[in-house]
């Protein structure tokens, strides 16, 4: 059992280490963790403007979301106003373009 436990701990460290190495931050990406206060899906359904209330500053941050999987979740109401979000965005042509948008994890 001790050997098995050691193997398991080693595997866990390998896995978590893999995740750590795989996570590469882009220098110009801005991270925001906050709560959705507003979701406005464009009429053509190809983008959505989401306003987040930044947990740290309390300021609203409007982010443009264009990835299909997230837009799907807006349409299916699996992401709603009031949900906690972790988001990374880049400022492109004066607009905050979302690069990473997902609900706060937890169970």
């Amino acid at each position: 059992m001790k050997r098995a436990a050691s193997v398991m701990v080693a595997v866990a460290f390998l896995v978590f280490g893999f995740f750590a190495v795989s996570s590469i931050a882009h220098a110009d990406e801005i991270k925001v963790v906050g709560v959705i206060t507003k979701i406005e899906v464009a009429k053509d359904g190809k983008s959505a403007t989401v306003t987040l209330k930044d947990n740290e500053t309390g300021n609203p941050v409007a982010v443009n979301v264009t990835d299909d999987l997230t837009l799907d979740k807006f349409n299916d109401h699996r992401i709603l106003e009031g949900d906690g979000i972790r988001c990374k965005y880049e400022v492109i042509n004066g607009k905050n373009e979302s690069k990473f948008f997902k609900k706060t994890a937890g169970c």
């Binding site: 995740f19 795989s22 972790r86 997902k102």
Partner: peptide, 30 residues
């Protein structure tokens, strides 16, 4: 279920316990 839950074929059991979880922001692994 999202992050919650366990694979039903292995655990479908009302447990009392706890979880520590980590959801890293990895672009290649959504």
């Amino acid at each position: 279920p999202g992050n919650a839950g366990t694979p039903a074929m292995m655990i479908d059991y009302a447990f009392d316990g706890g979880t520590i979880g980590w959801a890293p922001d990895i672009d290649a692994l959504p």
